[in-house]
Amino acid sequence: MQLVIWRSKIHSPEVEKIIELSGQNVYSCYQCGMCTASCPSTGNMDIPPNMIVRLIQIGMIGKVLDSRSIWVCTSCFTCFAECPKGIDIASLTEALRLYHLRRNIDHLNLSSIPHGELLELPVIAMVGALRKFTA
């Protein structure tokens, strides 16, 4: 496996956009892994949080955008609370989701969920999911 990198790949428009939207300085990350160690969802992710930051640092934004991880992150902010460099990874995953959502690509299709189940759900669950997963 090898990756060829160059200036404009590392600082591609997609990378710049994600950094701007999230307001996070990914370059201050020194890969201690505290986020991954404390994230309750690591087990459900294909790319752990520290690796998300790493891949953005080296311009591999496509891999991150396609990852399952950004859709299982619950914005619980444990990573942010623990990060020694104060990086809010929840804001990063939000920016990554928005990258899709702002192109009108929804992640959630309510019609695929049984009607009975929908009726049971509290309003906050529905509104929260719609805001996080749909355009």
Partner: peptide, 12 residues
């Protein structure tokens, strides 16, 4: 102990 090994990419 819940930690991480960033080289293997695994939570340990």
């Amino acid at each position: 102990v819940e930690g991480v090994d960033t080289i293997s990419g695994l939570k340990i």
